[in-house]
């Protein structure tokens, strides 16, 4: 083991933060470190927090961090926000809600931009969660953007998936997005200080009763929270611990495998698009084939197969 990776495994903040940067930026050589890091994962309780923007995910994460810390547990947070499709820049603002932990050495928060990966969980985000796991954080919380495919993907790779909704959403059947009922291990109805909480809880219960989901013997609880007042968070913590015990026995190996597969899939896509089918090569091939995308891809494909000797 090289000394830099060892420092990360020992929990050194500077080294861990630096490796996250090398990894997020895909700086040449980063993968040599990540190979060792991934082998040291699988110990943290990986928690996905998802739900529409504005539902209160970051505020909930903030409150959960206090709860975990009060139990003596260390926490890593991967807070994902979208990159602008126009400029490629981003404002990563989840930390606004988590500012009380800046001087707590038991908490490591990292803001991550989607960098064009909208519609899924990027390999970078997975790598950063893996680094926190390998650093020895007891819980690693992944806060997603809450749109599209990333909700489904975080559910696949997290040990426990928390779906956050707010009162009023149940009024409109459309507001409960397709697939959301199936992926939640725990439902949170946040902003319970607002009107209509009971109705939303009832609506969710009804919808859940019609949702054939669990291959496993787990019924997702519905928890009311007012994250901004830190109310209901102790119950959420307990249910998370229940689910952790459940997941540890029934699912842990499967979940760790899902994470490794998800990462491997992402790595393949990245390599295919940066090394084989990068956009300049594609544009040229399309031009050469007089605007026929099928033949253009076929030509590049054949070249790749020939050059790998198959």
């Amino acid at each position: 083991m090289d000394s830099f990776t060892q420092r990360v495994l020992d929990g050194d903040e500077l080294a861990a933060a630096r490796l996250m940067r090398l990894t997020d930026d895909r700086i040449k050589g980063y993968d040599a470190y990540m190979r060792n890091i991934w082998r040291h994962t699988g110990n943290a309780h990986v928690i996905g927090i998802t739900g529409a923007p504005g539902a209160g995910k970051s505020t909930l994460v903030d409150a959960l961090i206090y709860e975990y810390r009060s139990k003596g547990k260390t926490v890593g947070v991967v807070a994902i926000d979208p990159s602008s499709p126009f400029s490629g820049g981003a404002i990563l603002g989840d930390r606004i809600r988590m500012s009380g932990h800046s001087n707590d050495s038991g908490v490591f928060i990292r803001s991550v931009a989607t960098r064009g990966h909208l519609g899924g969980l990027s390999v970078s985000a997975m790598d950063i969660a893996a680094i926190m796991d390998a650093m020895g954080k007891d819980a690693v919380i992944i806060e997603t953007v809450g749109v599209g495919q990333d909700e489904i993907e975080v559910a696949a790779v997290a040990d426990s998936c928390v779906v956050v909704t707010v009162p009023g959403m149940g009024d409109d059947i459309q507001a409960i997005k397709a697939g959301i009922l199936e992926i939640a291990d725990i439902f949170v109805v946040n902003k319970a200080d607002r009107d209509g909480v009971e109705r939303t809880v009832k609506d969710l219960e009804t919808m859940l009763s019609f949702t054939p989901r669990h291959r496993y013997n787990w019924t997702p609880p519905i928890i009311k929270t007012t994250a901004s007042e830190k109310s209901g968070i102790d119950t959420l913590y307990e249910r998370l611990e229940d689910h952790r015990s459940f997941a540890m026995s029934a699912l842990k190996a499967e979940k760790q495998q899902a994470r490794l597969l998800h990462a491997a899939n992402g790595i393949i896509k990245e390599r295919v698009f940066t090394e084989l089918f990068h956009s300049q090569k594609l544009s040229e091939a399309i031009k050469n084939e007089r605007n026929d995308p099928y033949t253009a891809v076929e030509k590049i494909w054949e070249q790749c197969i020939i050059s790998t000797g198959n």
Binding site: S83, S87, G89, A90, I91, N103, S111
Partner: peptide, 19 residues
């Protein structure tokens, strides 16, 4: 800065130098 293509981490009000 976002519109110029940079990633900005924004932490809100009342931060101490340590934070």
């Amino acid at each position: 800065l976002r519109d110029a293509g940079f990633e900005v981490i924004y932490t809100g009000l009342r931060q101490t130098p340590e934070a």
